[in-house]
């Protein structure tokens, strides 16, 4: 199967007065149609910027795309004209973000916002689009969708707003859904409902989902493949089983071990000392060097090359880990 999205050696930096912030520094991965790719990593590791930058949703300057390719069905999004990209974004590629209030217009009825992409991208009539909108709200579990169409965003709870966001992202039947922390602001009970809705819709439509989250539990439940990011780099990628059971990178392992879990009694949490480095003052080698328990001298000078563990399972680390 051909990937739907292929990111190759992509680099995006911010040129600020403080210096160059290397938010995305040479990342490569791909996502296949119908699959869910989970991106994990701590705050500031570049998860959001790596998507927002090629979708041209960040002001430039300060953002500067430094290199690489982002191929959607083989066509480089970075080389498209603004008009060509608009045909893709919000249409074949849809997005949901963490904070629904910032992406919803508070002064517009939910229905009016919901059908906008249908009017723009699909040339539906107002009436047709309104009908489809009602179906979309129903699909994401909103009771009385006819009435909901005429409400304003503030009349909904956080969970309901996030459902509206999902409905909005799905109206155009996208082939790829980029969901950036879609449930982070929600209670676990509501999170479970929303993740179920996403799973069911994916089963019916075969859309690919690129799921960004710092919650390893959410990734474990949904992702077929996982990318672990740190300081703008990909540290490890593989199937969910590769990452959760056979990780070959000290950071992925440490992250997993330091996570409190409900299915275990933990007397002491193994911690990762220190914090993520300043991305404008990155050392030449591996950015995890200072915090790594397996560090060696070479790690300090040269970022490790790709190491293939199994087909599809790759890490960027010099250390030989027990398997």
């Amino acid at each position: 199967m051909k990937p739907i999205l292929e990111i190759k050696n992509f680099q995006a930096h911010f040129h600020t007065r403080r210096g160059i912030v290397k938010a995305v520094d040479d990342i490569s991965y791909q996502i296949l149609p119908g699959e869910t790719l989970g991106i994990v990593g701590e705050s500031g590791s570049g998860k959001s910027v790596s998507q927002l930058s090629y979708l041209r949703l960040l002001p430039s300057p300060p953002l500067k795309i430094v290199g690489g390719e982002v191929l959607f069905h083989g066509k480089d999004l970075l080389k498209m004209t603004a008009e060509e990209l608009r045909q893709v974004r919000g249409n074949k590629i849809s997005m949901i973000f963490q904070e629904p209030m910032t992406s919803l217009n508070p002064y517009m009825k939910v229905g009016t916002q919901l059908i906008e992409p249908l009017l723009i991208h699909r040339g539906h009539s107002q009436e047709e689009a309104w009908k489809k909108g009602i179906l979309e709200l129903k699909r994401v579990g909103i009771s009385d969708p006819e009435k909901a169409m005429s409400k304003y965003p503030h009349e909904f709870s956080g969970g309901m707003r996030q459902r509206v966001m999902i409905a909005m992202a799905l109206t155009t039947d996208p082939e790829l859904l980029i969901a950036d922390e879609p449930t982070t602001a929600l209670d676990v009970t509501v999170q479970a409902q929303i993740l179920d809705i996403l799973k069911n819709i994916q089963k019916q439509t075969k859309m690919a989902i690129l799921l960004i989250t710092h919650d390893l539990g959410v990734i474990a439940g949904l992702a077929d493949h996982v990318v672990v990011m740190y300081a703008g780099r990909v540290f490890e990628k593989g199937t969910a089983a590769d990452i959760f059971e056979k990780s070959q990178h000290p950071y992925s392992r440490a992250l997993l071990k330091s996570t409190p879990r409900i299915d275990a009694i933990q007397t002491q949490l193994p911690v990762i000392a220190g914090t993520i480095p300043d991305l404008s003052k990155l050392p030449p080698g591996c950015p995890f060097y200072d915090r790594c328990e397996n560090r060696m001298d070479i790690c300090r000078s040269v970022f490790p090359p790709k190491k293939a563990i199994d087909p599809g399972h790759e890490t960027y680390c010099y250390a030989e880990m027990s398997r």
């Binding site: 676990v188 009970t189 999170q191 479970a192 919650d215 390893l216 539990g217 959410v218 990734i219 474990a220 439940g221 992702a223 969910a240 089983a241 959760f244 059971e245 997993l256 996570t259 879990r261 409900i262 299915d263």
Partner: peptide, 19 residues
């Protein structure tokens, strides 16, 4: 319900849970 909604960072367990 609360406990069963908490995701567990282990794909095998998490995918076979009854909530």
């Amino acid at each position: 319900a609360l406990i069963s909604a908490v995701p567990i960072p282990d794909p095998k367990t998490e995918r076979n849970r009854v909530r």
